[in-house]
Design a protein around this nucleic acid. Sequence first.
DNA 1: TATAATTCGGACAATTTTATCTTAAAATAA
DNA 2: TTATTTTAAGATAAAATTGTCCGAATTATA
Lengths: 144, 144
Amino acid sequence: MFSKACEYGIKAAVFIAQKSLLNQRTSLGEISDEINSPRAFTAKVLQILARENIIKSMRGAHGGFYVEDNAIENVKLYNIVFAIDGDNIYNGCALGFKKCDENKPCPMHFQFKSIRDNLKSVLHQTSLHDLATDVESGISFLKI
Amino acid sequence: MFSKACEYGIKAAVFIAQKSLLNQRTSLGEISDEINSPRAFTAKVLQILARENIIKSMRGAHGGFYVEDNAIENVKLYNIVFAIDGDNIYNGCALGFKKCDENKPCPMHFQFKSIRDNLKSVLHQTSLHDLATDVESGISFLKI
DNA sequence: TATAATTCGGACAATTTTATCTTAAAATAA
DNA sequence: TTATTTTAAGATAAAATTGTCCGAATTATA
């Protein structure tokens, strides 16, 4: 469903948000340990998120990654997925047509409308804060 | 969402079913023309579907691909997707965990439950017959 | 039987995605 | 200022997916 890059990006962002709620920065090493992801590849993904202002980064000693207070609430899963994988998942045609709409639908267009809409609404509704507090309180997990 | 292989497989199967409803076999060349897919790659996908008994193939002059009468009703999108992409799309964890369930859920587990269930039910409900008749009657399209 | 039409299967090639390595740049602190 | 810690960025490599080619096998027909 999501690319590996996007999976790592989501997990990393949630972990960074979790740390930020505790007023802590976290480093690439700590992140990739915590979410069990390849370090250098994760760095690339974090660069994307930082360029898109979804997370903040700071170089140097005591540097690392963090999420700004207001972003923890305002950044939605939607923004992360869009930054990394684009909007193809929930806007793209299930059969890969460039142009597929009610006027000229692919055979799966109508059956998939509810799925796409559902996905879009979930990604729009779920904030970093929601996910991070769940992990913090032991309701969900970033590593299994 | 689906792999390219799966997209081609679905389109091809629908076209083959459409022809079979008219009691005609169709060849690889006709299929890849009709669904606008790379010929040799499509052949590989059709081999998978044939091995899984989702479609039938016959070599030689006047050979080609077809779907058996009962299969047109009985084969669901589910079977095609499963044969080509496996069940990862609707059973797999959104964040890629091997083991992710209510007991030890990833941060997106509950938000994605409805999406997965919705997807699963759509794929289970939609038959080749449904898709093929829509195309045949001009309601939907295999090429755009 | 010979020929043509067709799928099958294996090997290969190109592209995309995933992953790594190495050096530079920036921030902190001694 | 120098050393240390950290991210940034670019080059490269590995793996997976997508795509191609070719000869063998099979079927129908002349």
